[in-house]
Simulated assay, not measured.
Amino acid sequence: MTTATHDTLGRRLRIAAWSGAVFLLLLPFVAMQFTREVQWDAFDFLVFGIMLLVAGGAFDLLTRMGGGWPYRIGAAIGVFAGFFLIWVNLAVGIIGSEDNPANILYALVITIAVGGAIVSHARARGMSRTFALAAVAQVAIGALALAMGLGEGSRIYPRDIIGATLIVTTLWLAAAGAFAIAARNGD
């Protein structure tokens, strides 16, 4: 693939990602017009907008740094995993409700992901290790929450912890795998 073609694909990918972010931000506004189940205020839109801006910015930066598709796929999955973990935690919580202070433990997973990306200079091999470590931390926090009975008051305990742990851990591992492929390809 020529450099010009590669740049064009990258530009299109970034445009699609930013367009998707705008669509996601508009989705609750549209839903509020049709149902009372969605009740967002200005603060909700502000927080969600900031989350989309940070996730979009991280994805944009990573796609500019990486070369091939495995790297870009790893970046997309990794950024989505972090975004999803924060979003679920703020919206409904993983350990009990969103108000349960034990949910702050998941900040460690985000710290590992962001810190590892910085320390590794976002190189594919380092990103693979970073996201594998994030998966280990995700599982450890879920296991700790279950062992200590954190969130027992939730009506869906322990399914909430087990389900979220499986979903987000799978995302971290998928990102780690894509970055491992990128590292083998020399990206």
Score class of each variant (00 low, 15 high):
residue 3 T to Q: 15
residue 34 F to C: 05
residue 73 I to N: 04
residue 179 F to L: 02
residue 142 G to P: 09
residue 145 A to K: 06
residue 5 T to L: 14
residue 177 G to N: 09
residue 97 S to R: 14
residue 157 Y to S: 00
residue 147 A to D: 00
residue 23 F to M: 05
residue 110 I to R: 05
residue 99 D to R: 15
residue 113 A to V: 10
residue 101 P to L: 14
residue 173 L to V: 15
residue 177 G to R: 11
residue 85 L to S: 08
residue 8 T to F: 11
residue 97 S to C: 02
residue 73 I to W: 09
residue 169 T to R: 06
residue 42 A to G: 03
residue 159 R to P: 03
residue 28 P to K: 04
residue 131 F to Y: 10
residue 59 F to P: 01
residue 9 L to F: 03
residue 157 Y to H: 12
residue 12 R to Q: 11
residue 38 V to E: 07
residue 26 L to V: 09
residue 49 G to P: 07
residue 128 S to N: 01
residue 86 I to L: 15
residue 77 I to H: 07
residue 66 G to S: 13
residue 178 A to Q: 00
residue 28 P to Y: 06
residue 173 L to T: 08
residue 70 P to V: 13
residue 77 I to M: 02
residue 56 G to S: 00
residue 103 N to A: 08
residue 52 L to K: 03
residue 152 E to T: 15
residue 44 D to Q: 12
residue 90 L to F: 11
residue 38 V to P: 00
residue 40 W to I: 06
residue 131 F to Q: 02
residue 159 R to V: 12
residue 45 F to M: 09
residue 2 T to A: 10
residue 56 G to I: 01
residue 40 W to S: 05
residue 73 I to T: 13
residue 3 T to L: 15
residue 160 D to N: 14
residue 107 A to C: 14
residue 125 R to F: 08
residue 86 I to Q: 00
residue 112 I to C: 02
residue 126 G to V: 10
residue 59 F to T: 08
residue 147 A to G: 09
residue 177 G to K: 07
residue 168 V to M: 04
residue 76 A to N: 11
residue 169 T to N: 01
residue 38 V to R: 07
residue 10 G to P: 04
residue 7 D to K: 15
residue 10 G to K: 10
residue 19 S to W: 09
residue 85 L to E: 07
residue 105 L to T: 03
residue 85 L to K: 10
residue 172 W to Q: 01
residue 30 V to H: 03
residue 48 F to M: 09
residue 179 F to W: 04
residue 179 F to E: 05
residue 16 A to T: 13
residue 6 H to R: 15
residue 58 A to S: 10
residue 75 A to E: 05
residue 5 T to M: 11
residue 72 R to K: 15
